[in-house]
């Protein structure tokens, strides 16, 4: 069997499109009309909208200040009888020391990178992350891959705790994608996850079950003064 090449594959497209080579002068694509598609305005109370929408997805929302953040987190960890957890964020020092001094076992995911590193995360009770942004419209968390971010901490662990600074909240999904649209392909993070609630399914007779493959619980700590 002769394999399709880029050229032979594209020529299959040219015929039904009524041409012999790829069009170069493409008309401007339809603009995203914000009067239709935008659901949250920049001057809305983003903090309030985000908290409301995030809670509606089944995430537990905690409104905290920089001072009460770690106290609130460690209290929740105790409440859920967490033993072993890990932290994945840009500046993990303060969080890690708060966790350790509260007596929890801290897993160092950086010690073993790659597949084996992810493998170890299947045995953790919880993971704490920061976010790259949050979206008021849907109550979503944006978690990107990067040098200080393992993919597992918002995915593999049964409980994801996310710290959101008020200043990170964007009004609408439109704003997020406008912001990311000038990055070149190699500048784009390999993975952008838009996370909106705990893992869900309704496959068996439409009965809603929380916690299938991804985290069954998501707690969001929104820091009002940051």
């Amino acid at each position: 069997m002769t394999r399709s090449t880029r050229e032979s594959f594209l020529s299959r497209l040219h015929k039904p499109l009524g041409r012999t080579s790829t069009i170069t002068n493409v008309p401007t694509p339809p603009e995203v009309d914000e009067s239709i598609a935008r659901l949250v305005q920049p001057d809305d109370d983003l903090f309030a909208v985000f908290c409301e929408k995030a809670a509606a997805t089944g995430m537990k929302v905690h409104q905290v200040t920089g001072d009460s953040l770690y106290e609130t987190i460690t209290a929740r960890l105790r409440e859920e009888n967490v033993r072993k957890l890990s932290v994945s964020m840009n500046d993990p020092m303060a969080t890690e020391s708060a966790i350790k001094s509260a007596g929890f076992e801290l897993h160092d995911w950086k010690a073993v990178p790659g597949k084996d590193g992810l493998d170890a995360q299947f045995d953790l009770d919880a993971g704490i992350t920061d976010v790259h942004n949050a979206i008021a419209e849907t109550g979503s968390l944006i978690c990107q891959s990067g040098s200080s971010h393992t993919r597992g901490m918002s995915l593999i662990v049964p409980w994801h705790l996310a710290i959101v600074k008020k200043s990170q909240i964007m009004p609408d999904l439109i704003d997020f994608w406008n912001d990311r649209s000038s990055l070149s392909p190699d500048q784009m993070p390999a993975s952008i996850a838009i996370i909106t609630g705990p893992s869900k399914t309704a496959d068996i007779e439409g009965v809603l079950i929380t916690g299938v493959h991804g985290p069954a619980m998501v707690d969001v700590f929104v820091v009002e003064d940051q």
């Binding site: 929408k53 997805t57 419209e137 849907t138 979503s140 891959s145 999904l173 392909p185 190699d186 784009m188 993070p189 390999a190 993975s191 952008i192 996850a193 838009i194 996370i195 909106t196 609630g197 705990p198 893992s199 869900k200 991804g214």
Partner: peptide, 14 residues
């Protein structure tokens, strides 16, 4: 309003 996970992938791991 939106699926729980929207995963946008651009290339393999950096």
């Amino acid at each position: 309003p939106i699926t729980v996970y929207n995963h946008i992938m651009t290339g393999p791991k950096r």
